[in-house]
Design a protein around this nucleic acid. Structure first.
Lengths: 144, 144
DNA sequence: TTATATGCAAATCCTTTGCCGTCGA
DNA sequence: TCGACGGCAAAGGATTTGCATATAA
């Protein structure tokens, strides 16, 4: 039984090779936001002879087919997640690196309006929030 | 007469060398969002023997001193702008590459609130909008 | 069969670093 | 003076690519 991603690949007419199935499966089963190295590591367990070049090529192809979303959190490498019907943004916990997904309709609306006011039609956006857990670290400046 | 950035450098106790003055000046005079290569190119006109390594080192030092802001628009290289008292975000015109700055207090407030609702204190964020000029390209799907 | 995909290693792009001579305070 | 700085070239990390072989359809 093909996973969600493999199904999408077939739908979009991508040639399904053993390697692509493995990458598709790794991504279907991921609940986090793996980078290429992570995907390679996980895929290698299922298909030891897969190469990192194939992983990169496959990720790019999946992204171009709209199956994957590329995320960049500013640490120099790209992370991937499957495209979901409901759009969401990310909050990165800077103290642990944990990534939290959230949705906010008001925010989406506001972004469209801002673009419109500037004379543009919004075709995309990227928004990442960086935060530390409340009650951790020092919120005020003059405490110690 | 030192520019705004050189003044900040002095304020923060950075040792002022000829190269740093040149980089500071280039950035003080920039009205766009140059990447390291751009800064190097512009600095070279004022100081032909400056090296790209020095430009990178200086940009990093200025950034760490809070004098510069590092921007990443997803094209693989960092861009820089001087830190301004009033925060702003960017809208990138995907048809021309032009970058438009904007401020929106409601947006900032909403971001803080979202973080708070998730149990976080917002320590930073990054938001870029991507758009095409209104009236250009096809907004509807079934026209031609 | 035949265009497309994969492996491997080399290449690229952006950025950082080691080393050693130089310069600012 | 003397520790910080700059130049050069080499190193690094992430990602892409050329080429010969293998494979899906």
């Amino acid at each position: 039984m093909p996973g969600q991603i493999e199904r999408l690949c077939i739908e979009r007419g991508l040639r399904m090779t053993g390697q692509r199935r493995v990458v598709a499966r790794v991504l279907s089963e991921a609940n986090d936001h793996p980078d290429a190295e992570d995907v390679y590591r996980r895929a290698s367990k299922l298909e030891p002879k897969i190469s990192i070049a194939t992983v990169y090529r496959t990720l790019r192809i999946f992204e171009e087919a709209g199956i994957l979303q590329r995320l960049e959190f500013g640490d120099g490498r790209a992370r991937f997640e499957r495209t979901e019907s409901e759009h969401h943004d990310h909050l990165i916990d800077t103290s642990s690196g944990k990534v939290i997904e959230f949705q906010n309709a008001q925010l989406e609306e506001l972004q469209e309006q801002i673009a419109r006011d500037l004379g543009y039609r919004l075709v995309g956006h990227r928004m990442d929030l960086y935060g530390v857990p409340l009650g951790q670290a020092a919120p005020a400046k003059d405490e110690e």
